[in-house]
Structure formats: structure tokens, C-alpha cells
């Protein structure tokens, strides 16, 4: 019923990837109700997950986050495309 902070950290992460058992859920919940740090940790994992989804959406929508295709690579691919002959 009582788990360590290390275990709570694992459960905070794994709760996003698998179904926790009833026992795990309960002990996790009890732990978070007593441990402010782990509660903050779990919240931050959630935020990080949400942020990862958002950055992916932004990039798919064409926002210029991070470097684009280099000039050199662009030229290389352009040549490849322009020399393409339909078989």
C-alpha cells in the first residue's frame, strides 16, 4: 500500500503507457496525496506529454521550429527530382 518515491515516479510515467492494476492505482493515489513532490512530478509528466503533442501539431502545420532543410540538401534533392525520368 505504501510505495517509495522512486516507485511512484515509475507509476507516474507508466500510467501513460499501460493500465495500472487496482492495487497500483490505489497505492499511487495514496502516495500522491501525501507527497507533494511526486504530485508535482506526475503533473509535469502530463504537461511534457501534452507539449510533445503540441509541438508535433505545430510542425505539421508548418511552423518554423528548429532548422529547415539545408540549402545543400535542397539542391541535391532538386537535381534528383529534375533528372527523374518516368519508367
Amino acid at each position: 500500500m505504501f510505495i517509495s518515491c522512486k516507485k511512484a515516479g515509475e507509476l507516474a510515467s507508466e500510467s501513460h503507457d499501460r493500465k495500472l492494476s487496482v492495487m497500483e492505482k490505489l497505492s499511487f493515489k495514496i502516495h500522491l496525496s501525501m507527497c507533494k513532490i511526486c504530485k508535482v512530478f506526475a503533473k509535469q509528466y502530463e504537461l511534457v506529454k501534452e507539449m510533445t503533442k503540441i509541438i508535433n501539431k505545430k510542425i505539421e502545420d508548418g511552423e518554423p521550429i528548429g532548422p529547415g532543410l539545408s540549402e545543400e540538401a535542397s539542391q541535391k534533392i532538386k537535381i534528383k527530382i529534375s533528372s527523374y525520368k518516368e519508367e
Binding site: 509541438i55 508535433n56 510542425i59 505539421e60 508548418g62 518554423p64 521550429i65 528548429g66 532548422p67 529547415g68 532543410l69 540538401a73 535542397s74 534533392i77 532538386k78 527530382i81 529534375s82 527523374y84
Partner: peptide, 18 residues
């Protein structure tokens, strides 16, 4: 096709490097 790199090069590259 010759416009594709200019149109989509950056977005595809960013998608890939993610």
C-alpha cells in the same frame, strides 16, 4: 514536382528530424 522541395522541403525535414 520541381516545386516540391521549395514547397515541402522544410516541413518534411522538420517532421523527420522530430
Amino acid at each position: 514536382f520541381n516545386t516540391w522541395v521549395d514547397q515541402y522541403g522544410d516541413i518534411l525535414f522538420r517532421f523527420a528530424t522530430l
